[in-house]
Amino acid sequence: MKRAFYYLILVVALLVVAAFALANKQWIAQGVDLSYDPTRPGAVETTIHLPMFLVLFGVLLVGMILGGITVWLKQGRFRRAARVAQVEVERHRGEIDRLRSQANASETREGQAMLPSSVPF
């Protein structure tokens, strides 16, 4: 059921993206001025002709990448705290196992010492 819902949402999202691309298929000229010269205002060195939806999807992709990097950097302290906590948990588990084995060993020694050897078990 989850998988069917996932595919339904995926198909709807793809239809929305396709409709958006069809609605914005007009070509635009995007000027790129890599060598800014204040003495020649409005002079563009390179002009790229692209469909508008490619420009919009490109901006969306760059925004998602920058947002992902920002979130990853902001959550670094939480990942570090989780790593420290995991090391501490492993250390405590080892200590618990050691104490359990010591407790079991002392119980068996006490149990053997308390039972007389003449008990017919």
Score class of each variant (00 low, 15 high):
residue 74 K to M: 06
residue 54 L to R: 12
residue 109 R to G: 00
residue 83 R to P: 01
residue 53 F to D: 02
residue 66 L to G: 12
residue 43 A to G: 09
residue 98 R to G: 12
residue 95 E to Q: 11
residue 92 H to W: 11
residue 11 V to E: 04
residue 47 T to E: 03
residue 33 D to A: 03
residue 8 L to Y: 05
residue 68 G to V: 05
residue 76 G to I: 02
residue 13 A to S: 07
residue 30 Q to P: 00
residue 36 Y to V: 11
residue 69 I to M: 09
residue 73 L to E: 07
residue 72 W to K: 09
residue 120 P to M: 04
residue 26 Q to P: 05
residue 98 R to K: 09
residue 30 Q to K: 12
residue 41 P to C: 01
residue 74 K to C: 01
residue 42 G to P: 01
residue 28 I to C: 00
residue 52 M to D: 07
residue 40 R to C: 02
residue 46 T to L: 14
residue 42 G to H: 03
residue 41 P to I: 04
residue 7 Y to Q: 11
residue 111 G to I: 01
residue 35 S to F: 10
residue 79 R to A: 01
residue 91 R to T: 10
residue 72 W to Y: 14
residue 10 L to T: 15
residue 81 A to W: 06
residue 45 E to T: 09
residue 116 P to W: 10
residue 58 G to I: 12
residue 86 Q to G: 01
residue 43 A to C: 00
residue 60 L to P: 05
residue 16 V to Y: 08
residue 46 T to R: 12
residue 55 V to P: 03
residue 75 Q to Y: 12
residue 29 A to M: 07
residue 65 I to Q: 09
residue 93 R to L: 13
residue 118 S to H: 15
residue 46 T to D: 09
residue 42 G to D: 02
residue 24 N to H: 11
residue 12 V to D: 01
residue 96 I to F: 05
residue 51 P to S: 01
residue 111 G to N: 13
residue 69 I to G: 04
residue 6 Y to N: 09
residue 57 F to V: 06
residue 29 A to K: 13
residue 41 P to W: 01
residue 53 F to W: 11
residue 118 S to W: 15
residue 37 D to F: 01
residue 20 F to W: 14
residue 31 G to Q: 01
residue 1 M to G: 15
residue 41 P to L: 01
residue 98 R to N: 08
residue 16 V to L: 13
residue 111 G to R: 08
residue 44 V to A: 04
residue 99 L to T: 00
residue 46 T to N: 09
residue 77 R to T: 06
residue 71 V to T: 08
residue 3 R to T: 10
residue 2 K to Q: 13
residue 31 G to D: 02
residue 85 A to T: 05
residue 103 A to R: 15
residue 94 G to Q: 06
